[in-house]
Write a protein that binds this DNA or RNA. Structure first.
Lengths: 151, 151
DNA sequence: TCATATTTGGTGCATATACACCTATTTCAC
DNA sequence: GTGAAATAGGTGTATATGCACCAAATATGA
């Protein structure tokens, strides 16, 4: 009576490993968006980080890590090249432990410059996967974060 | 007449970036599978690599990189800890350029040991996402690789 | 008040990822 | 047969990722 759906049997095969399939898709997608953004000098991950800081505004490092669902120490290191390029800056507040991450005018400028390149890549992915399929995949990825994420 | 589907408008927002959503889902999922496999000492990526070599048998490094949809140089480095632990070994053939990657008895043993831990993690993901949703997401991820992958 | 727990962030280490560039071997055209 | 092209793989460099552990500042409670 179990497994009346043949797909459910397949799911216990390593070929259907969520991790392996995500990792593989992530590799090709990162290369694709990185290539699209190459004229701007930004990596896709950096573009995402800058866009989030621009949209959400100044916030503490740990809060930003929560928003990105990224380890705090990973974020610390990902910030370095962006600070070095003066796209992001670090501010202080009364609580001397806190580092406030904010985007500079130069940071906003490069996000604006990169946006058309990002949109072109995004449009190509939508066209390739199909406009009707894409929203469902994004929803699935977000659900996965909610389900599996330790938050 | 364009964009009769409201979802299609959303897709051009950076919040629906395929790269950012994949990367975020990959982060939480890697942590989840890594934690599940921790008793075995294997990382999820290493488990995947070993399982593929076991299933597909001995093959040249570049061929393995194609199968994994992974850059050749990434694979070279990912192999190192597995070779050091004697789970994988490198063989030679007539063409002296070729390195043949094969799994050792110890490699097969640790894959077998890790399999129940992997399955537990996989089952939890299936349960969390829903058995009816999971196959579709895997199909989407594979389609993304086909569409976006430079192969 | 002051010792302790919590919060905030960083470092050391190891793996994961890939581009640009390199070497060695083999194949192929002539 | 030999020189160029193609193939197989590695190195240098940079980013991306997170765990274990650490330091400093703040909050808490007796």
């Amino acid at each position: 009576m179990t497994n009346s759906n043949p797909d459910l049997d397949e799911l216990t095969d390593v070929g259907f490993c969520a991790h392996a399939n995500l990792r593989r898709a992530m590799r090709v997608t990162s290369q694709f968006y990185d290539a699209a953004l190459k004229p701007t000098g930004l990596r896709a991950t950096q573009f995402t980080l800058l866009a989030v800081v621009e949209r959400r505004g100044e916030m503490p490092l740990s809060k930003l890590a929560d928003v990105l669902v990224m380890d705090r120490t990973t974020l610390t290191r990902n910030l370095q090249p962006l600070i070095k390029n003066r796209w992001l800056s670090i501010g202080r507040e009364a609580d001397e432990r806190v580092k406030l991450v904010s985007i500079s005018p130069a940071g906003k400028a490069i996000v604006a410059e990169a946006m058309p390149f990002w949109r072109q890549a995004q449009d190509q992915v939508i066209a390739g996967l199909g406009g009707e399929r894409m929203p469902g995949m994004i929803k699935d990825l977000r659900a996965l974060v909610d389900v599996v994420g330790g938050s």
